[in-house]
């Protein structure tokens, strides 16, 4: 089974976690156009390769955190806390 490293609990099996999708998507102002709001809600880059995403250790400590993971190999190249920004070396 795939293992993920919770920053608080260490390596745990994947079925203790929930994936919350792409991380750090900024919410537009509430009076934005329908176009901008629709893009924010539904449209995603969905990359084949490195993806910065948020995970929650739901069946563990319950904390959210960020992961950079390759969507083809599933290799994790960074784990960082929810308020931290993506390590520069891994910018797309």
């Amino acid at each position: 089974m795939m293992q993920l490293q919770c920053p608080f609990c260490g390596y745990r099996p994947e079925n203790e976690f929930d994936c919350g999708g792409t991380t750090a998507i900024a919410r537009p102002p509430i009076d934005c156009s329908d176009e901008v709001w629709g893009d924010y809600l539904f449209f995603r880059v969905n990359p084949k390769g490195l993806h910065a995403e948020r995970w929650r250790h739901t069946f563990g400590c319950g904390q959210w955190f960020n992961v950079v993971r390759d969507t083809v190999t599933h290799e994790v190249s960074a784990v960082y806390r929810i308020t931290e920004s993506r390590p520069r070396a891994l910018d797309p």
């Binding site: 795939m2 099996p13 994947e14 079925n15 929930d18 994936c19 084949k48 969507t71 083809v72 599933h74």
Partner: peptide
Amino acid sequence: DHFPSYAQRGSFA
């Protein structure tokens, strides 16, 4: 599988 993937294999979970 509950996370995005382009790998044509399903997770063991």
